[in-house]
Design a protein around this nucleic acid. Sequence first.
DNA 1: ATGAACGAGACTACTGTGCT
DNA 2: AGCACAGTAGTCTCGTTCAT
Length: 323
Amino acid sequence: MEHFFGQQWKDQGIYHLIKLFDRPLVMDRSLLAAALCFWSSATNTMNFRFGMMTPTVLDMASLFSLSPLGVEVNAALVAPEVEGSFKTTWLTLARLAENKAKNMLNYSNFYSNFGVEDSFEDDAIAPLGEVEHTAFLLYWLCKFVFCTQANKVTLEFAHLADYLAQGGRLALSPFLLGHIYRTLHDIVTDGMKPKHGGPLWAFQFWLQAYFPELRGVASPNDNEPLANAFARAPKKHNATAFCYKFFYSLTERTGTQFRVRLARPFPMFLAHDLSVILDGETENDLKEIWGSFLVSRDLHCDLSKAGAEVYLPNFVARQFGLI
DNA sequence: ATGAACGAGACTACTGTGCT
DNA sequence: AGCACAGTAGTCTCGTTCAT
């Protein structure tokens, strides 16, 4: 897949997030359990003694190099069953399989159905490659990115996969953030039960980025997002009580600690010195990017039911290097 | 941890009723 | 007759459970 579509993924800003799952991620239960005690699902922020902190669209962009711009992912993206969409392909396949279709969405069955042996014949790309590419992206979205609760591929993200496979640029930064908020809300309001799905891994990376005291030492290079460096770093195990005490007794953070996301020249658009006057097009892009970071709004996180989570960056101005 | 099966809930298409 | 809406049966999808 990488051989054929690597460049396209880079253009779309999903390359690094795909590579991130090359190695298994280790869940830091202590860190998450302690951090969740400080999460408020009313404002979608962590509330500490010194004030609020929260994952932002900027964090998603710089931790995972996801695009803050592009077509907004919401219920409107769900196009009617177009010719050649994955869902229609899927329906015909399911018909053929008759009653066996029920379990074809399990990860392993899905993989054996759509995964094709490595072959470097270039003419294999279309049309089979098209479907396989979509299937790969759908598998990736369900199993690794959004961690569906049902532990199998769900068709909820089929249109998303279609769109990505066709090379479309989606605003995945706000979308992932919306899902993080929703996941944290579900866990916090449901007695911290461990049964929930959702991109909890992303929240863990965010915690590691802002609280380096609680993670192992990472050595990021300038061409990769921080998350990929953290995934390589040695694991550091802290007891839950230790993490809790750390958060509880945290009375202040310095400006540098708040601006940790802005200190690196990755991805490219963060490297711009904002005091320099830019040419028209770049300036417009920058405006839109920073608009996406800074405007309070609802983030869509549910494609079928128009669900949304409130995003309040005005509470965490310090994280953007503002007063 | 994984796959098969089951059941709840959401969605859809169709039918019947009542109003204009 | 024509239209809008409510009810209903059937289908589909997802989350859970249980066995392996």
